Simulated scan of single mutants.
Amino acid sequence: MASKGFDATSLPGFTAIAAIAFIALYAPIITLVGYSFNGANSISSWGGFSFRWYEAAWANATVQEATIRSLVIAASASLIATTAATMAALGTTRRGSFGGQTFIYVMINQPLMVPEIVTAVALLIVFASVKVATGYTGLGYLILAHAAFCIPFAYLPIRARLEGMDLSLETAAADLYANPWQTFRHVTLPLVLPGIIAGAMLAFVISLDDVVITEFVKSAGQDTLPTYMLGQLRRGVTPEVNAISTVLLGLTVLLLTVFFLLTRKRD
Rank of each mutant, 00 (worst) to 15 (best):
G34R: 08
V205A: 02
P180F: 02
L261I: 10
Y177F: 09
M1W: 15
L230G: 03
V118Y: 02
N60Q: 01
L191F: 11
L71Y: 03
W53F: 08
W181G: 00
P12I: 01
F204C: 09
T171K: 14
H146Y: 12
A21G: 07
F37Q: 04
P115Y: 05
L71C: 11
A8S: 13
T246S: 12
W46G: 02
F14H: 10
A200M: 15
A178H: 12
T246L: 08
I80V: 14
S245E: 05
L230T: 10
F37I: 03
H186I: 11
R185D: 08
R264D: 04
E55R: 11
W181N: 06
L32Q: 12
L124R: 06
E240V: 06
V237R: 08
L256A: 00
V126S: 09
G250E: 09
A203P: 03
S219N: 10
D166G: 08
A200C: 15
V132E: 14
A148F: 15
L123E: 13
L79V: 15
G5E: 11
W181D: 02
T171R: 13
F6Q: 11
N109V: 03
V217R: 12
G140I: 05
E215S: 13
F98H: 11
E215C: 08
A89C: 08
G199E: 03
L142I: 15
V106C: 06
A174Q: 08
G5W: 09
L262M: 00
P111G: 03
R94Y: 13
Y177R: 08
A77Q: 08
A40N: 07
I43W: 04
Q222A: 01
R94C: 04
F259T: 05
A66Q: 00
V63E: 00
A27I: 10
S45P: 05
L208Q: 04
A200D: 06
R264C: 03
M201S: 04
L79T: 15
I43K: 00
I213L: 01
T62Q: 06
A160M: 07
G34T: 13
A145I: 13
L202D: 01
G221W: 04
A59L: 06
E116I: 06
H186W: 09
I158N: 10
E163M: 09
I108G: 11
L233G: 10
P115L: 04
H146D: 06
R266I: 10
L25R: 02
P157C: 00
E170D: 11
L254C: 07
Q101E: 09
S50D: 12
Q64R: 15
I125F: 14
I17G: 05
L79H: 13
G199D: 00
T188Y: 05
L251Y: 10
T238L: 01
I80E: 00
A16M: 05
Y26N: 06
L208C: 14
T188W: 10
L90N: 13
S42C: 11
L191Y: 12
P226C: 01
S78D: 04
P157Y: 03
I151R: 13
D210N: 12
P28N: 09
F127K: 09
L156T: 15
A203K: 04
A59R: 15
R234M: 12
E215V: 08
I117G: 07
A198S: 12
A122M: 02
T137Y: 07
A89Y: 04
L193A: 13
V132A: 12
F153D: 04
G91S: 03
F184T: 14
I117H: 11
A160T: 13
G195T: 10
Y26E: 00
I244W: 01
I73E: 01
A145Y: 14
L139I: 15
L79W: 14
P12F: 01
